[in-house]
Amino acid sequence: MTDIGFAALQQIVANEFDIAPASVTRETTAEDVDGWDSVSHASLIMAVEKAFNVVFPDDDIYTMENVGAMHDKIVELSR
């Protein structure tokens, strides 16, 4: 079964932007992370979808406010 704990998402975000996992919190936003733009966001979305076996609705891709909201969405889509 896929681990949908926050730590797993933390690790994916950290890998995508080459930062320490501990620096990724529920409140982390694109403004906080160097290199997080619309193109790298798409790459992150693909990595998250693959890892958690979910597909984000198109309308949600650019409206999730922070990493916490992304995690909440993953949990919702995994139900």
């Binding site: 936003t29 694109a30 403004e31 906080d32 160097d34 290199g35 997080w36 733009d37």
Partner: peptide, 22 residues
């Protein structure tokens, strides 16, 4: 951290682009 956040946010609001690195 707060300053870096502000820089990225203000550049984005003015030019619709996030700097890759601040």
């Amino acid at each position: 951290k707060s300053l870096r956040h502000q820089v990225r946010e203000q550049v984005f609001q003015s030019l619709s682009i996030y700097p890759s690195e601040v």
